[in-house]
């Protein structure tokens, strides 16, 4: 296939693949946070309970990395439509990628190093979480 010669081919493929993953990841995330928990039940203990399972940390990390690179990729393709910006492409791309990288680093740091304060998970007694555990929706 001839697409290998066209610049931006990787970005094109990445955008479609990461986009497909993000549809699934964000769909689950939005339903979980807004409909299963509800924004009124997002206390520290809720997060501690959720991130007690490595599965959810991996899901959130995937969402973070795919989301930020997908976003940076998208912003770059918008910027390329403007002649004046194309002239200083390198600087703009560096700026966008730096923002994206810093967000990924901070987000990963939170996801990896978060360890709930003593007793946070144990004292958690929300009926919502019990429902989730009983229905086995965690794994």
């Amino acid at each position: 296939m001839s697409y290998k010669k066209v610049p931006g081919t990787f970005a094109w493929w990445f955008q479609r693949i990461s986009g497909s993953f993000l549809i699934i990841l964000i769909f689950i995330h939005f339903i979980d946070v807004h409909f299963i928990f509800g924004v009124e039940n997002l206390e520290y203990e809720t997060v501690a309970e959720k991130w007690n399972k490595p599965f959810w940390r991996i899901m959130d990390a995937l969402m973070l990395v795919f989301g930020m690179i997908h976003g940076a990729n998208g912003i770059e393709s918008i910027l390329l439509d403007y002649k004046k910006i194309r002239k200083y492409k390198a600087y703009w791309f560096f700026f966008i990628r730096a923002i994206s990288a810093v967000t990924i680093i901070i987000g990963s740091w939170i996801i990896v190093t978060f360890s709930p304060e003593e007793g946070s998970v144990a004292k958690y007694e929300s009926p919502v979480a019990e429902m989730r555990d009983e229905s086995g929706s965690h794994e």
Binding site: T103, W109, E117
Partner: peptide, 16 residues
């Protein structure tokens, strides 16, 4: 939104 959303999560590291 995503950038702000991730920055907001820093509160998880600050304290309950």
């Amino acid at each position: 939104f995503l950038i702000i959303h991730v920055m907001g999560a820093i509160y998880l590291k600050i304290g309950p």
